[in-house]
């Protein structure tokens, strides 16, 4: 299971990367693996205000539909348009080209409250028991 250092993670298996001007959000390697072939991604559009825990989109595999929840509060400034024609990017490169949205204005406290890589790994191990 690929869990890169330097990212923050949620219990719903989203990742958060802090960048200039906002945080980039996607789903983790564990999540894409659980879903199987992602065939459709539907994201909220830029300009949408979200609170921590609000859905920012849905990811569908052949069999299942999953919501993606915002790990932080803020406003969506960009949604990954590449996923419209290439939903499989979520499986192929979930921490890279398979990113989902960028959210600006997130409180630092909310970001710091998320798990770091070792904590997320421990969380997955505990979940597997």
């Amino acid at each position: 299971m690929d869990i890169p250092e330097g990212l923050r993670y949620t219990r719903d298996h989203e990742w958060v990367r802090v960048e200039d001007g906002g945080v980039r959000i996607g789903i983790t390697d564990y999540a894409q693996h659980e879903l199987g072939d992602v065939v459709f991604v539907d994201l909220k559009s830029a300009g949408t205000a979200v609170k921590k825990g609000d859905p920012v989109g849905t990811v569908e595999s052949v069999k299942a539909v999953s919501d993606v929840y915002s790990p932080v509060s803020g406003a969506i400034t960009e949604a990954n348009a590449d996923l419209e024609s290439g939903p499989e990017l979520v499986n192929q490169d979930c921490y890279g080209r398979g990113w989902m949205v960028i959210i600006a204005g997130a409180p630092v406290m909310e970001i710091e409250a998320l798990m770091d890589a070792p904590a997320y790994r421990a969380y997955l191990e505990q979940e597997a028991k």
Partner: peptide, 9 residues
Amino acid sequence: PVWYSGIKE
């Protein structure tokens, strides 16, 4: 088994 390599494949 629901899938091995992936449903599409």
